[in-house]
Simulated scan of single mutants.
Amino acid sequence: MNHWNDLLVLILIVSAIYMLIYFGYLGFTRYVKNKRINKKYIALIYKIRLFYKPIAWIVVIGGFVALDPLTHGFIILLVAGFVFKQLGNYVSGLFIRSSPLLAVDTVVKAGKMRGRINRIGSLGLVLITDQGERWVWYNSFDHTGFTLISNHTNVQQRALYLKSELSKEKLQNLIFDHPILVLGKPIILKALQNENTYLLHYTLVKGAQHEDFINFLQDHEVLINSTEKFDS
């Protein structure tokens, strides 16, 4: 990329693709309202739309840096330093917002806090709690873990911290061996900075007991915690 006109063309291309995805999602959602089509296709298009936006920004920023790697690269690093916390919230929010259970009126439990989702933002959630409305950053869920409870299906999605000597692949295989998890629902196992420590997002089948899954993991010498700080 050698000229500003090239960057403008790049912006127009990624914007046009996003608009196609956006209107395609709206059109498909309206179409299936009166059709018996599996909702997983709607969820798939929603995830594509959700994750395409940051990818588009990365592409545009890459094109901007390519015009003048030294100067523009320094500018991007400077801006990133000022908005680092917001970027962390946004990235955490991408994975939380991709959950099919995350919707207005879903009940959220995180640590001692419990509330009903009133609004979903790019950086956090507005919850209705016993003390009134409360803004919660997505980053806070990474530190405390959380549970999503759908008011319509009573299905639960939970977040749990694990510590195990098993490799990530073997731990994933162990998790998928348990029948308590909902097939077809997203199960995310994320390696953390602390050695052998992972953050697990999973969905329970209707009527299943969370404690059964915890006991299953503990029987296989997997440590369980509600935060990433395990006792030494």
Rank of each mutant, 00 (worst) to 15 (best):
L12C: 11
E195R: 15
L223S: 14
F84R: 07
M19N: 10
A103C: 09
T144L: 09
I61P: 14
I11D: 03
N194Q: 14
Y161I: 14
T106Q: 00
L10M: 01
K229D: 15
I180Y: 08
V32N: 02
V222E: 09
F230T: 08
D130Q: 09
S164Q: 10
R49Y: 06
T106G: 00
I45R: 07
I120K: 00
F64K: 08
L200K: 03
L162T: 05
L102G: 09
I61C: 14
M1N: 13
G73Y: 08
N196V: 10
K33V: 15
H3G: 07
E165R: 15
G63W: 10
D177C: 06
E211D: 12
L20V: 07
D6L: 13
L148G: 05
T227Y: 02
H220F: 09
V182K: 12
L189K: 01
G88K: 01
L94R: 06
G111K: 05
F64R: 13
L7K: 07
S150N: 04
Y41V: 01
L148Q: 00
L8V: 11
N215H: 07
L148K: 07
K33D: 12
S150H: 04
T106R: 01
N89D: 11
F176I: 09
V155W: 03
H201K: 12
E228C: 03
S92Q: 03
K185V: 08
D130K: 14
W57G: 14
V222W: 02
G88Y: 04
R97C: 00
F23V: 03
W135L: 15
T129Y: 00
V182M: 15
M113Y: 05
G24S: 09
D212E: 08
L26M: 09
I37L: 14
A56Q: 07
V155E: 07
N2H: 14
G145R: 05
V108F: 00
L94S: 01
N225T: 12
S232C: 03
Y52G: 05
Y90K: 05
K47A: 08
T153D: 08
P54Q: 07
N215C: 04
R114G: 13
V136D: 04
A16G: 07
S167W: 05
L67M: 08
I37D: 01
K109S: 06
V14S: 03
F176W: 12
L183V: 12
L181D: 02
W4I: 06
K190E: 12
V136R: 01
N173F: 06
I149P: 03
F95C: 03
L101T: 00
L160Q: 04
I76G: 04
G93M: 04
K39I: 15
